[in-house]
Write a protein that binds this DNA or RNA. Sequence first.
DNA 1: GCGATCAGCT
DNA 2: CACAGCTGATCGC
Length: 445
Amino acid sequence: MDEALISVDRWAKGSQAYFLTHLHADHTKGLSSTWSHAPLYCSSFTADLIPLKFSDFDLSLLHVFEIGTWQTLNLISRSSGAPTAVEFIAIDACHCPGSVMLLFRGEFGCMLYTGDFRWEVGCERAAKAKEMLAGAIKDDKVDVVYLDNTYCNPIYDFPNRQVAAQQVIDIIASHPDHDVIIGINTLGKEDLLVQISEALKIKIWVWPERLWTMDLLGFYDNFTINTSITRVRAVPQYSFNVETLEELNRIKCPTIGIMPSGLPWVKKSPPKTKSISRAHLTARCKKAEWSEDDDEYEPMGDIGPPEKLHKYIFTVPYSDHSNFAEIMDFVKLIRPKNLKGIVSSSSCYIEPMYYLGLLCQGNRPSEVLNSKLKRKARATVAGSNKKPSGSYNAELVRKRSMTLKARLKRIRLSKHSILRKVRKGAKIPDISADLKTDSDGNQVE
DNA sequence: GCGATCAGCT
DNA sequence: CACAGCTGATCGC
């Protein structure tokens, strides 16, 4: 019932092949050391890290793919029982080390699963990936894109990582007599740390497991596990807070904390901050709704002074997910027949089709508007946790008729709604159903 | 006791 | 609010 020919970042039993886009925890929920269902396909770097995360993982199940090379899997069609071929190619997603997006061709049509990705304007690596993907698609039509829609809402406007990195460097350079701690996670933001290391000509302290990751990436000279030779330390994001910083300043030495955070919407003091104006938002949305031929957005260059969360803590909008403008450019490039989000964790969640439907093939107006996805009490969904399908209801029809201005207002108000992360990952339907209307092609857990 | 799942927190 | 992910409690084997 819940089975599929192949699965991406989704680990329920029943598929004949499994794909892992990258090794972040929210994409490996259900994967474990004892996992043994079927072959697992991933990038070389992800394969290197798997034994670190899952100590007894059966490595004979791992199949490493090359970026940019088509491969064919010979599987058994679930509908006919006959042999069926699935072709796939992996493209650099520029999200974290080893991260890829995956393009599939098979009896289900042509399907692109982006995983988490950030393709920035002006990023050479992203430009190469873009070119590679366009080459892989050629003149084919992509039936469905499963999109990293983490920031698929015009309210998410933040600079590229180069700009954010420079801001971090400036903060550190302007505090020459301070110790610095930078919050990071188990994978990701390595490029930021390397830039800091090279710009300021210092090594950065990381914890031992993290040093292993840095070594795997070939950054032998930028990191150390010796605290005595550097004033800059990268520590687990959860390991410091306001109290920690106050304590360090009181008993040790002057210390600042930096949070390179993918949470660009944290606006503590609206009056003074350079927040997005209503007019600006409206312009953005107009572009999203009606532009066909307009140019790409200008990326945010001047991001103003670093935001201070606290006397000792700075936040910098360094994000490994594409912002809204970048998502828009991506959809314009692919122009799929259908578009589905793979994340619905944000309180600002909007179905991707709502803003980007017009950029898809056939210029269809948004079919599915901001479906609420408000999860009912856990007990009531025990039987089925599928989100409501795209069928019309009074709420959707009402929203569809709302003016843009009213919609924007609503988006802002909806910041307080309660939404939980309900899906990540996808199964690939094994029959070529009408992908346009099959609202369950994307699988909910 | 161990692994899987979940609540809570940042 | 919540990126990505840790800790700790609880449940089932």
